[in-house]
């Protein structure tokens, strides 16, 4: 399993318009191409997860995640906001890089946990935040995942 297999170019936004955490979550959910009701339900679930504790893991990275009935397969998205968003992250620093992961409650291949783990591992690589900040095009994001072998 490789992370690059889960990301599509249209689910990568290197220039988020959002200024707040809620806006960023909505903008990322919007990248998944769901209908309005499903987007609303998913946003609510992601908010509920954030209310349990921030998914900002430090080093300017956040990984909001949840399982929901409104998706029929594992979906991921990536968004970047170079000026930073207050995510109440572990290190209290603004978040620039947001990885969204959503999965249905039942998955035949059970990829949710491994994908979450790989993204967390990717985010902990020392040069990743800087490399993500330097990306110019979505294709370069995919190339970085390949280069890191995650």
């Amino acid at each position: 399993m490789q992370l690059r297999d889960f990301f599509t170019l249209d689910a990568i936004n290197l220039d988020l318009e959002s200024e707040t955490k809620d806006e960023a979550l909505k903008e990322l959910v919007g990248l998944l191409g769901l209908d309005e009701k499903s987007r609303g339900i998913l946003f609510k679930m992601l908010k509920r997860r954030e209310n349990l504790g921030s998914t900002g893991i430090g080093r300017r990275i956040a990984i909001p995640h949840c399982r929901s009935l409104v998706v029929n397969r594992l979906r991921v998205a990536f968004g970047r906001k170079l000026s930073g968003i207050d995510f109440d992250a572990i290190d209290k620093k603004p978040v620039q890089h947001v990885f969204l992961i959503v999965a249905p409650p039942l998955e035949v291949s059970n990829q949710y946990l491994p994908v979450l783990g790989r993204i967390a591992q990717f985010g902990k690589e020392p040069d990743v935040p800087e490399r993500l900040a330097e990306l110019q095009r979505p294709e370069e994001f995919i190339a970085l995942l390949e280069e890191k072998g995650v």
């Binding site: 009701k37 339900i41 609510k44 679930m45 509920r48 997860r49 949840c66 399982r67 929901s68 009935l69 409104v70 409650p105």
Partner: peptide
């Protein structure tokens, strides 16, 4: 919609 929310919370 409430049932979906409930099921998602139970899943969480």
């Amino acid at each position: 919609e409430l049932l979906l929310e409930l099921q998602d919370l139970q899943t969480q």
